[in-house]
Each structure stands twice: as structure tokens, then as C-alpha cells.
Nucleic acid binder design. Structure first.
Length: 489
RNA sequence: GGUCACGUAGCCAAGUGGUCAGGCAGCGGUCUGCAAAACCGUCCACAGCGGUUCGAAUCCGCUCGUGACCUCCA
């Protein structure tokens, strides 16, 4: 299939035609979770955004290597216990090993991602498993003259780097402004400049996670792992680097500087950033304490939630907004998505029941073009879904007899919907386990036959009782021209 | 304070110089024993004030409001 994909590159601040460095291969790196707590809605956004990209690139025919890291080397926190290691701190509270915390939350993250039907990355490297490589990159940066050691810690020399490079080109920051706007942090006095950042940090006594190195017993700096692991698995130059907008500065800016300082050239061709989830207009985040975990979403067990929302509803909800827009959470919005999603999946079932005619009154080719041009336009899933709903109308009209479809077109439509809805958007039917239960099916057939007979005898008291009671149990009965249908809600 | 976004109908959310977004909710109708679903029709917009233009929600300026980054964060 022809590649007409354009994506928005944060570096150029415009949409660019996507042309891989070494077609048909595509290297894609996405910043993954820091595993010290349950995954929340915010984690779902980049996972789903780049899952769509991964799926679509493969669909177009590229051979994609998708690398998403697990950050399991603690980063510094800036609260009452300033300077402590995030993961180490939680571990002490729980009286367990840091790696036990890491394992626990890695597992739950994987479980949640599977529920959301995201494909597994090709490689999922752990920062803690790449300490040697990180130390090597530090050495390289020092020997290239862009870093200096002070008291067992190594800092990146931003001023030196800026002499020949544009530090701030990704985030649009100006070094002079940073000079006056950078806050006082632990270890600040050791740095030549406030805006320098750590490549290696000497561990304080309370640090549990630490590794020996030629500089000190310590741990790698905040941004180093991504520079190291992306280039290790994708090469010094690779195609796509993704992550949340909140990582743009300083994390990704520092990554660019480190990689260039170590390797002599820019590593990333396309930088992509997904926007954030807001709740009542405010960012949903750990530090603000206003986050809803994915487990809470799926169970409905949270004070802000009026009901549970299934993983596919959450996925569909996110796809109804463009990935570069903020998406405001509310029960009303989720419920609207749930109904819309049900309407879409109902139409997919209807599609299977359509009876072809000799002629089509609908134009499936034109319809297909609309769908793919939406995707090609920087993954515009909201437009894509809007078109899918136009298709729903089409399907329903055919079912109702006001439009007709030929055999070839019907086959084409079925394949098109399968490709778009399941393969690219990554949605799936969420039928409960009883959906395919033969005994249940037989029992339902029996019940509905009794109901039909009751209706024929105008015994509506009985027929309504069957329908109402089934509804209470959670089974919806619909009467159609050809008889009764049922489904588990 | 510095930098950057955004402000679209009851809610969510696209679009972007002239012709339809879409979903949910609402209203009217068809269908039905009644519902549900479906179908048809319909209502409700582009924060405010100026400017450019034959024409602006869309471009420019100002004002107001909201948010993000500058500190770990998806």
C-alpha cells in the first residue's frame, strides 16, 4: 500500500511527509512508564497514540521495530524528602526490595496495556539493565568535552554544547531565559551553570538503588537511559521518538543534547508528542493527586466515577480526540463515547447480516479514501471515526432497504471495517464469556420462542415480563422484522 | 516572572478564508401491542473588540479567560 502518511514533527512545528531513513524499516522509540505506581489514564494516552502509529505503519507495509522503555531506576523527587530516590522511597515504606516494586508495577502496567488492546513493543528495555551502557555514554560525552565531574557526580555542560549546537531547539527555549528561570535544586552548587543537568549522580546514603562506577557509587542521570537505549536498539539515527508533551522539556531536550554530544549527530528524525489528559481542565498527574488509575476506570471504583468504563470505551474515548489536543475527562463525555461505541459495534454486527443486491447505491471506494486520508493526516482519528459513523448510517440504510450494496462491495466493506476498526484502531468486541456459550444460546432461544408465542396470543403481560426480567439480568432484547435478537450488555 | 498553547453549540470534539464535521443529549415524525434499535427530519456554535478582505469561526492586533512547560511526571 502506498505511503501518504504525514506526521507532525515537534522539531519543525509542522506536519511533514513521513519518509523513513531506511525503508522499509522504521525505528520507533516511545518513553514508557516509571514503574513505581499503578498506571493511570495519563499512561493510556501515549500507549494508545503510538499503538495506533505502530499498527498503521505495519498496515502500510513497513517493518517496524517499536522500543518502549521501562524506567526502573529511580529519579529524584522534589518534596519533603528531597533528594531521595522515588523507587527507593516507596520501597522503604513498603518494606520490600526496590526491584520487587518494579516487578509489581511492571506487571500491572502490562496487564492494563493488554486490557487496552495495545500491541506489545518489539523490545521493552529496562533502564536498570543498561547501567554499563549508560556509563559508557557518560565517558564518551566527557571525552568529547561536553561534561565535567564534580565530587563523584557528572554534569552535562550545556554552555559548552551551546557554542556549536542549539540547546532548546525542540522546546523553543532560549538559554538566556533558562539562566534566569531555573530553580534551585539539590546539588545545584556543584554545577557550572544552573541549567546543566546530571549524567551521573553520586548516591546519598539513603539511596538503595546504586551502582558502582569510576566516578562514584551512584546512579545514572534522569535523561540518559532514553539516549542510550534508543540508539542501542534502533541505531545512532532512527525515525520516530514519541512521548508525552510534558517530557518535551527538559527530558527530550536533554536527550537530544546527550545523543549529539556522544554520537556527533542528531539521532531522531521525527519527534512526536501526545497531549495530556485533563480533569476539570487541569492536568491529571501524580503530583497533583487527581489521577484515576486504569484499574479504577475499569472497575468504576473511584469517587469521581459514576460507573465503570470498559477498556474499549476508554480507548474509543481517547481516539475521539486528536492526540495533539488535550482531552478533558468527565463522566458525561465517557458515557457519550460508550453509547457511540455501542452504536459502532452494533453496526458491525449489522454489516454481517446484510444481504447483497445486484447494484450498489453506495460508493465504497470514495468512502475508503476518506478513511485513509484522515489517518494519513497526522493520525486524525476523530475525523476517521466521524467517517466511520457516516458508514454506520450507510450500513443501517442498507439494512433498512433504503440503500443497496453489491456482493463485491459488501465483501469490500466488511474487509475495510475489519482493517480499520480492529487492525488499525485496535478496537475489539467485548463480549462476555457467556457470549459463545451454547447452553445459554439454547436457553435464550427457548425463552424468546415462548415470548414470541405469547406475543402471538396477545399475551403482552408475559412477553413484557420476559423482556423486562432479562433486561434486569443484563440481557437486552430487540424485536426486529425477522424475529427477536438478544445481547449481553 | 519567562516561554508556549488553547477558548467551537447542553456536554465531548474536528475543521480552518466562501459549500456537511462527528458522537452524546434534546425535539418532531416513521416503525412497534408497548418499548428498544433503526430510519427520516430538526434545534443549538465558533470568548470579546478592532483590522485586512468582495467575503473570516478561520489571517493580523488588542483585551479577557483557561491551561501547559520552566521541578519528578504520560
Amino acid at each position: 500500500m502506498e505511503n501518504k502518511l504525514t506526521i507532525y514533527n515537534t522539531l519543525s512545528r509542522r506536519k511533514e511527509k513521513f519518509e523513513p531513513i531506511n525503508p522499509p524499516f522504521v525505528g520507533m522509540y516511545v518513553c514508557g512508564p516509571t514503574v513505581y505506581g499503578d498506571a493511570h489514564l495519563g499512561h493510556a494516552r501515549p500507549a494508545i497514540t503510538f499503538d495506533i502509529l505502530f499498527r498503521y505503519l505495519k498496515y502500510i507495509g513497513f517493518k517496524v521495530r517499536y522500543v518502549r522503555n521501562i524506567t526502573d531506576v529511580g529519579h529524584l523527587v522534589n518534596d519533603a524528602d528531597e533528594g531521595e530516590d522515588k523507587i527507593a522511597k516507596k520501597a522503604k515504606l513498603d518494606q520490600v526490595e526496590p526491584m520487587e516494586i518494579v516487578q509489581k508495577y511492571t506487571n500491572s502496567y502490562h496487564r492494563n496495556m493488554e486490557q487496552l488492546n495495545t500491541l506489545k513493543p518489539s523490545i521493552e528495555p529496562h533502564a536498570s539493565a543498561h547501567i554499563i551502557e549508560q556509563a559508557e555514554m557518560v565517558k564518551k560525552i566527557i571525552s568529547n568535552g561536553y561534561a565535567y565531574e564534580v565530587n563523584g557526580s557528572v554534569y552535562f555542560d550545556v554552555a559548552e554544547y551551546s557554542k556549536t549546537n542549539n540547546y532548546g531547539k525542540l522546546s523553543g527555549r532560549v538559554l538566556d531565559d533558562l539562566q534566569t528561570n531555573t530553580r534551585e535544586l539539590d546539588g545545584q552548587s556543584e554545577k557550572k551553570n544552573l541549567f546543566d543537568f546530571a549524567l551521573w549522580k553520586k548516591a546519598m546514603p539513603e539511596h538503595i538503588m546504586r551502582w558502582n562506577s569510576e566516578w562514584s557509587d551512584g546512579f545514572p542521570g534522569w535523561h540518559l537511559e532514553c539516549s542510550v537505549m534508543s540508539t542501542k536498539y534502533l541505531g545512532d539515527k532512527f525515525d520516530i521518538h514519541g512521548g508525552g508533551l510534558d517530557l518535551q522539556f527538559p527530558h527530550h531536550e536533554c536527550e537530544i543534547a546527550q545523543s549529539k554530544a556522544a554520537l556527533g549527530e542528531d539521532s531522531v528524525k521525527y519527534w512526536m508528542h501526545n497531549n495530556l489528559i485533563t480533569i476539570d481542565g487541569q492536568k491529571m498527574s501524580k503530583s497533583l493527586g487527581n489521577f484515576i488509575t486504569l484499574d479504577e476506570m475499569f472497575s468504576g471504583n473511584h469517587k469521581l466515577l459514576e460507573q465503570a468504563y470498559s477498556p474499549m470505551v476508554v480507548r474509543f474515548f481517547m481516539l475521539q480526540a486528536h492526540y495533539r489536543s488535550t482531552l478533558d475527562f468527565s463522566n458525561k463525555a465517557l458515557q457519550a463515547s460508550q453509547k457511540g461505541y455501542e452504536r459502532l459495534t452494533d453496526a458491525l454486527n449489522t454489516l454481517e447480516k446484510l444481504i447483497p443486491r445486484t447494484e450498489s447505491t453506495v460508493n465504497v471506494n470514495q468512502f475508503k479514501d476518506k478513511l485513509f486520508s484522515a489517518l494519513d493526516d497526522d493520525l486524525n482519528t476523530p475525523i476517521l471515526i466521524a467517517h466511520l459513523f457516516d458508514g454506520v448510517k450507510m450500513i443501517n440504510s442498507i439494512y433498512a432497504g433504503t440503500e443497496t450494496i453489491s456482493t463485491d462491495d459488501l465483501t469490500y466493506m466488511k474487509n475495510l471495517y475489519k482493517d480499520i476498526v480492529f487492525d488499525i484502531l485496535g478496537l475489539k468486541h467485548e463480549t462476555s464469556d457467556f457470549g459463545n456459550n451454547e447452553i445459554l444460546t439454547d436457553v435464550m432461544d427457548l425463552l424468546l420462542n415462548i415470548r414470541t408465542e405469547a406475543k402471538q396470543h396477545k399475551d403482552f403481560k408475559t412477553s413484557d415480563k420476559i423482556r423486562d426480567k432479562l433486561n434486569e439480568i443484563g440481557i437486552t432484547v430487540k424485536d426486529t422484522k425477522d424475529g427477536s435478537e438478544w445481547e449481553i450488555k
